[in-house]
Nucleic acid binder design. Structure first.
Length: 443
DNA sequence: ACTCATGATTCTGG
DNA sequence: CCAGAATCATGAGT
């Protein structure tokens, strides 16, 4: 039985044209004469060795004959056994399954980016963000949606490429697998190849292909990242509001100085007036995001509070402006609010007091300046009175609020801020009183 | 190149 | 969750 494995080996090898083993086999035959059976085997080997010299038909016939040899099944099994053992020992060492932590990550990311998920117009997350932005802002979302559609188009492109490539790989993988399987099956008639081994081979092929797939996923992820950074993570891309917008916002701010927390509607309105586009809303972090007007007011509040002195001039200017417009309005008989302003000085005072020492000064300055401002911009002298009146209003725009909401000077004082105003955001200042007058007239 | 103004983001406390 | 505070990043003026 010793030599029979060699037979099979040589056979297989001979077919594959392996020189080294042919040599080895020849050694085996050289040392075995005398025995009839071995002689027989020698013959067979001889035949095998010369098989390449024969015609194809002859070779085929010989092959068939060998294949039908009565010893073949037994030999085959034994060889398979031996092979299995050696293969196992080899495989044991390289038993690697460093599995798909990374693959999972990639998959998750692709899913999150809407590349590999269910078809949803591509970039579901971003699309959602865009939708949210559009819905939330309503205003000027054109440019934004344009940007997003651009982004989406690109993402869809990536998605398309990814899917076609993936499909290609899968197809290639399947084709190759079946090809190899056929080949092995075919060869298993002449070589000791067990089904198990074929299975193993298939596994290897799949692993190879999945590593290719991983590369594909990786590069897709990279592409998406680049796209994101190009389109969305230009988050801090800051475009200054235009002058008019700033003016409108400032007017609102200074006319609601005692409670500069515009309601949602007010913000909407302001945004509309300022034609502040939602493109300025952060698209990056995929959060529904803060309205630019909110940003503006947030920044304004904090910066104003931080350095009131610096903003005093501005405040005066807008106060004057407001005054002028308010007078023109009041001339039309919308004095409904004006009578209620006698105490406005108080609110102005309160505001003042809220800001340490120089506040008081600033109030003084405010009044003085406002007069001046009126003189400059105003056409009507008789407006001086109204001006004064309105100016005080500006200080206490939310007089009504102050009254109704117990917006006490003390509170402001102690805090040096507006925070104490109860639920500031709930105050719908745009629609109420002087504020609305002001903002309406400002247009 | 530098500085300042300013819109946006992030972190934190209530 | 919201406002404030801190910070980042950019645009504009010099």
């Amino acid at each position: 039985m010793d030599e029979q494995p060699r037979l099979m080996h040589s056979h297989g090898v001979g077919m594959a044209g392996h020189p080294g083993l042919a040599q080895h086999m020849q050694d085996g035959t050289g040392g075995t004469d005398g025995d009839g059976r071995k002689q027989d085997i020698g013959d067979i080997l001889q035949q095998i060795m010369t098989i390449t010299d024969q015609s194809l038909d002859e070779a085929q016939a010989r092959k068939h004959a060998l294949n039908c040899h009565r010893m073949k099944p037994a030999l085959f099994n034994i060889l398979c056994d031996i092979k299995e053992k050696t293969v196992l020992s080899i495989r044991g060492s390289q038993e690697e399954e460093p599995p798909d932590a990374q693959l999972m990550r990639l998959d998750n990311m692709l899913l999150a980016e809407g590349v590999s998920g269910p078809e949803k117009g591509g970039g579901s997350a971003v699309a959602a963000a865009a939708a949210a932005a559009a819905a939330g802002g309503g205003v000027g979302s054109d440019t934004n949606s344009a940007e997003h559609s651009d982004y989406r188009a690109k993402l869809t492109q990536i998605r398309g490429i990814y899917h076609t490539e993936l499909e290609k790989y899968e197809q290639a993988c399947n084709e190759f697998t079946t090809h190899v399987m056929n080949l092995l099956r075919e060869q298993s008639r002449t070589r000791p190849i067990s089904p198990k081994e074929i299975e193993r081979m298939v596994g290897i092929i799949h692993r190879k292909f999945s590593s290719i797939q991983m590369q594909l996923k990786q590069s897709t992820c990279e592409a998406v990242m680049i796209l994101r950074s190009r389109f969305l993570d230009a988050r801090r891309k800051r475009r200054n509001f235009n002058k008019q917008a700033t003016e409108i916002l400032n007017e609102y701010f200074y006319s609601h100085l005692s409670n500069p927390y515009p309601s949602e509607e007010a913000k909407e309105e302001l945004a509309k007036k300022c034609s502040i586009t939602m493109s300025q809303v952060c698209a990056a972090s995929r959060k529904p995001r803060i309205h630019p007007v909110s940003n503006w007011f947030g920044n304004k509040r904090i910066r104003y509070k931080k350095n009131i002195g610096k903003f005093q001039e501005e405040a005066n200017m807008y106060a004057a402006k407001t005054a002028v417009s308010a007078t023109s309005v009041s001339a039309h008989g919308s004095q409904a609010n004006s009578p209620s302003t006698p105490n406005s000085a108080g609110s102005a005072g309160s505001f003042n007091m809220s800001n340490s020492g120089d506040l008081f000064m600033s109030v003084q300055a405010l009044n003085g300046d406002s007069y001046q401002g009126a003189g400059v911009g105003a056409n009507v002298q008789s407006q001086v009175d109204t001006l004064r009146h309105v100016i005080s209003q500006t200080g206490g725009y939310s007089d009504s609020i102050a009254a109704s909401q117990m917006y006490s000077p003390q509170g402001i004082n102690t805090n040096g801020g507006w925070q104490d105003a109860p639920t500031p955001s709930s105050v719908n200042s745009l629609t109420e009183g002087p504020g609305s007058v002001h903002s309406d007239t400002s247009n």
